[in-house]
Design a protein around this nucleic acid. Structure first.
Lengths: 349, 349
DNA sequence: TTGTAAGCGTTATCAA
DNA sequence: TTGATAACGCTTACAA
């Protein structure tokens, strides 16, 4: 942990000026003999370039930040997993910010761009407030937002399409012959809750099915809460033959409760989740689930940012990632063969 | 995205020297009038300190790196989730490195400490090679290793105890009356594979049970592979009444295959996994699983590093985190009540 | 081809 | 209490 050598140390050792050292290190035209001497000295001293000093001079840190509410959330994790390699291969390090779903922390991150410790930022805010928009307009580094921003906001933007996602699932249930399709949602004062609730209603309308408030139950985006909500729904409407759950955890809660109630899935009640997390493939029966393309959104966001860091100013771009329905046993009854490898699973070590 | 103001800009605006600006900004004793002028100018200009310049001067970046094979791996994710808040509250940013299980990449990360873009590093290497040890001895910043390093290695070190972990599970199975306990392991040329295989053998010995090679099957740490291995084992030893699986994915594969074979879990065959991932609680039947304390290890590592960054040189410290057995239905047959909230689940948004 | 020197934006020393 | 100035470690004109 001794103090590292600098170009000055090398210059002395090699008997040349620091300018020559720098030139050699950067591959600029230099006399062969000088190159040799400098390389030898650098080698002997175990020289490594000081990234901070380079950044100060070049005004580039080769770092990019990714800010989201919580890495533990599978959706953000999926984004992160795609963002990382894109940045890495473009030569950027990744700085991770967890904002714990606190808006003030998000604003903080935007503000901290002024410190210039990163060249750009990818942010997936919970919701975009007025304050966000103000800060975005004044941001001191390029920002890519994963989520929706108003037309005209001067940032690149990647969005999901949860409305179409819900529709995919509802249409699927309808084609399977289900006509009494309930909805188990999370709080409707959240962005996803509101969007998914509205989408459910629209999807029914498109199919000519009546919207019935009795078939809708609001809980929270967790397994136990989801289970409770499903129990209440079943109590009220024992004739329900399908459940559209606003996320996978709620759907797992639904499976718990249906099993306890002696209802067979999908024979009596078909169940669909959303987000297509690892849990969907792990549960039994495995869970049909709508993927909103978190992985793709992460990848797109990283690519947009890298592109912008190359080409300073172009028009802000917008990318919308289409949803995808992963059909599994909880609606069709057909478990995949046990030996068939599911997607990218990860385990020990 | 205009070029940000610097202390020079402020100095001009306030009609004072840059030294005064710096003093005010750092809360050093200054005349009230000067403070006012400087603060006003800083405010108007929307000044934010340049972190890079500060770092160059102070030789501290307030950044810490965490390097592991793959964030997608639940064990590393659990570490990350604990590391993040510890660092954050200590005033450090987190730089994330995924090494993709490539040893050269790990060495690279160690080498890059010389660039001084971080004040310290937490690393969870796959295995610690000679080269690792050489680099660690010469590391240009404090390092905490999650994993085992030889006695005398000059780094703080946090380790799990997989041997005791396996023993916990085997003892549990034994107490439930199982006497023909099979082992489904991953490759034994990996560190976890070797350790868990050896621990299985020892645990049996401790109980006075014979070690029988026929009861051991090697596959890989994935669900499909695990299933295949279990099928082979069942074929050879249909009398097996319990399966110790080297991780949760293997255990899920075991559940798949046992179900397909018409064997009831746990009535005919009890199943235990390892790592206690989210999947263990999500599966059905829910999975008894050994936690090796990834979360605790992450937390301990972060705390060790923060402590060392405060108190330059103290003796290297070693922390061992004890394993814990999460008992669930795959061994006891008792599903938790559906309404009972499982651990910290995360979902939408 | 090489060296001198300025400058990136700070902090910190030293006189005034 | 303040200002001029020298670092921090690097890149890059500009001169030699």
């Amino acid at each position: 942990m001794a103090d590292g050598p600098t170009i000055t140390t090398i210059a002395e050792r090699a008997g040349v000026s620091i300018a020559s050292v720098s030139r050699v290190l950067n591959g600029l035209p230099t006399r062969q003999e000088t190159v040799r001497k400098v390389m030898a000295a650098a080698e002997e001293l175990g020289y490594v370039r000081n990234a901070v000093a380079r950044s100060l001079k070049s005004r580039r840190t080769h770092q990019v930040a990714f800010a989201m509410a919580d890495v533990g959330n599978p959706a953000y994790l999926a984004m992160l997993r795609q963002i990382q390699p894109v940045l890495k291969s473009a030569g950027y390090r990744l700085v991770l910010h967890s904002t714990d779903a606190v808006v003030a922390d998000e604003i903080d991150v935007l503000h901290s761009l002024g410190e210039r410790y990163v060249d750009g930022l990818i942010m997936s805010p919970l919701r975009v407030t007025e304050q966000h928009l103000d800060m975005l307009a004044a941001a001191r580094a390029p920002v890519v937002i994963i989520g929706s921003v108003p037309e005209g906001t001067p940032v690149d933007n990647v969005r999901a399409d949860s409305r179409t996602g819900v529709k995919l699932a509802i249409d699927h249930l309808y084609r399977l012959g289900r006509r009494t399709i309930g909805m188990v949602n999370g709080p409707t004062d959240t962005v996803p809750g509101a969007a998914r609730g509205a989408a459910y209603r629209e999807a029914l309308e498109d199919l000519g099915l009546p919207y019935d408030e009795e078939l809708v139950e609001i809980g929270d985006f967790y397994r136990a809460e989801g289970g409770r909500a499903v129990a209440a729904l079943l109590e009220r409407r024992p004739d329900v033959d399908a459940l559209m759950c606003a996320n996978d955890l709620i759907a797992l809660g639904a499976l718990d409760v249906l099993r306890a109630a002696g209802r067979r899935v999908p024979h009596d009640v078909a169940v669909a989740g959303m987000d297509d997390t690892d849990l969907a493939a792990a549960s039994w029966p495995s869970l049909t689930s709508v993927s909103l393309g978190s992985a793709e959104r992460g990848k797109a966001a990283a690519e947009l940012l890298v592109d912008r860091l190359k080409n300073g100013d172009r028009e802000p771009r917008r990318v919308t990632v289409p949803p995808r329905l992963a059909v599994r046993a909880s609606t069709t009854g057909e478990e995949p063969a046990p030996y068939q490898a599911p997607g990218a699973e990860r385990g020990t070590p």
